[in-house]
Design a protein around this nucleic acid. Sequence first.
DNA 1: AAGTGGTCTAGACCACTAC
DNA 2: TAGTGGTCTAGACCACTTA
Lengths: 238, 238
Amino acid sequence: MSALYRQVCKKILDQIASGQRKVGDRLPPEEEFASELGISRSTLRLAFAELEASGVVRRRKRAGTQIIAMKPQPKFSMATSGIQDLLSLGRNTEFRINHVSTVHSDDIDFPGEHYSETAHWLKVCGARTMNDDPRPFSTNRVYVPARFAGIEPVLKTADTSVFQTIEATFGVSVNRVTQSTRAIACPRKDADLLGLEPGSPVLQIDAALYVQKGELMELSVAIFDPSRFQLYSDVSIE
Amino acid sequence: MSALYRQVCKKILDQIASGQRKVGDRLPPEEEFASELGISRSTLRLAFAELEASGVVRRRKRAGTQIIAMKPQPKFSMATSGIQDLLSLGRNTEFRINHVSTVHSDDIDFPGEHYSETAHWLKVCGARTMNDDPRPFSTNRVYVPARFAGIEPVLKTADTSVFQTIEATFGVSVNRVTQSTRAIACPRKDADLLGLEPGSPVLQIDAALYVQKGELMELSVAIFDPSRFQLYSDVSIE
DNA sequence: AAGTGGTCTAGACCACTAC
DNA sequence: TAGTGGTCTAGACCACTTA
């Protein structure tokens, strides 16, 4: 026989599955529910902790315990040693800035939504090299919203990445990263920098970095030489 | 003042940071530690639960509570509605099998390690179509180890994916997915199937699916038409 | 304002597993 | 096999949030 609090979990999940309780319903207050189930409040709380961790209920003071899902939500956790890895910046890489300018939101060349939240953006163009190899393995174009444009003077000394410069300067940290990856024929400009034939297949990764509450930190477009770079991901479930 | 058990967390983390306790050390047994800290065992357990959840300690019966990291490990959780999304199989897609054969492990064309765990593998070649568009948007080559080769007769009726067929047939579920993505020049064979010019840039995704304890479920090589497919990822930290 | 979850205590017995 | 974490109880007070 499994632990009592696990039985309680199962019981609640069964009640949800059978339609006896529905998503959106509120469960009784702890004290009441505990005596109703004939168990102590502590035990019930163990069960609730499990249901909360698995995304089945949400608990808020005064608002009670609310059912928000029918089944435990599988969690996809990414094996990553840091955002560096997530953003495909190797350990021994260096970022060299070629050009910095201020642009209008209309001039932003980034797929998807129109990022018109601020009129002016800082545009940073550069390239990334690895292990003292003078030939870069990626070219980068980064757009920084006006809010963080204050990094401009600091950028001169930055050799890691724009996002790390912003983190250090403003005391914020990246909270969320969305990426879109595709294969394209390499444009001439990037091909020249990467030492490739124009039109050869390259990987383009468009990334949006956010700090908190969906606040945008930067948009980034990177083009990678496929012979020296692959995108890895390692995801475990639950 | 924050909760007592949080203060205990912080205290332990501080002791680790100051070198007073080191990674690999064992913390005292709960009862002893609790009285040493002048708190109840329940409160200490709340602190331990937090430290365990954040990856700082590992707890095992009889072996005690061991420090395994100096700081709370940030968690990278991937926003995904399911493995389907993770593996870039759209909702309205269909998998059509072209060819099934048995091959030697030597004949496996998959980058990385030599997968010699089993001598014989089932090789499934197919393509994936979307929304009744007869022209596939991806070609697929899947290798299934001998252990799951029993799906062969069932494959005839499978139109979703090899991994789902294995899951349904053997009652297992995918536990971990590693992927490697790169841009390549499209081989002639795949170009014919996808309706592309040979040599045009395409996305190749090599994936390894595991069930549990690192047991391999399948190796998969997929080539995507970049005009109709992009790889998305959405990762939140902590 | 009060109902709710959050925190905390002091005990007890149990079950497993690593020594 | 015994030391350890796991489970469970019955109580108490508190702080917050939202109805």
